[in-house]
Amino acid sequence: MRVGVYIDGYNLYYGARTMCGRGTAGWRWLNLRALAGDLLEKHKGLWPAAEVARVVYCTARISGAENHEGQQEQDVYLRALRVSGSVDELSLGTYRHPHRDGSAGRGGEAEQADPEPPTMAGDDSGQWWRPRS
């Protein structure tokens, strides 16, 4: 039985980071084909004679303008996946703002905002108010 494995790289990365710890080593350099094989081994009762036929990894490039080190490390990892044969297909989407706190960050794109709640307006008196809607 030929098994195709489809991986949402973002879901996996953030899930793994929450599980293993952001500052902890030992989980990021993941061998996706080996993981797929382990998953089949755990389910060989239900799927006997199953083999990993295709590993498809879907992720997005990290923007170097916003996260230079992250982009370089991701680059190394994607090359490792390709060269080791850990994936058969690498599908890259477009990465946008990585800032979870909502800040635009260095090199972020400016966005026009409509002056309605939750927008606040302020002048140089230091006071802030919500525009009338």
Binding site: M1, R2, V3, G4, V5, Y6, I7, D8, G9, Y10, N11, L12, Y14, A36, L39, L40, W47, A50, A53, R54, V56, C58, T59, A60, E89, S91, G93, T94, Y95, R96, R100
Partner: peptide, 29 residues
């Protein structure tokens, strides 16, 4: 936060299933 990785995974999944290149699938998401 996602940037199309879910849509790409879904597309590859359905393409492979509908063209019969796989007999079973694992989805990691």
């Amino acid at each position: 936060e996602e940037k199309g990785s879910d849509v790409n995974a879904a597309s590859h999944l359905l393409l492979d299933v509908l063209t019969n290149v796989v007999d079973a699938v694992i989805v990691v998401s």
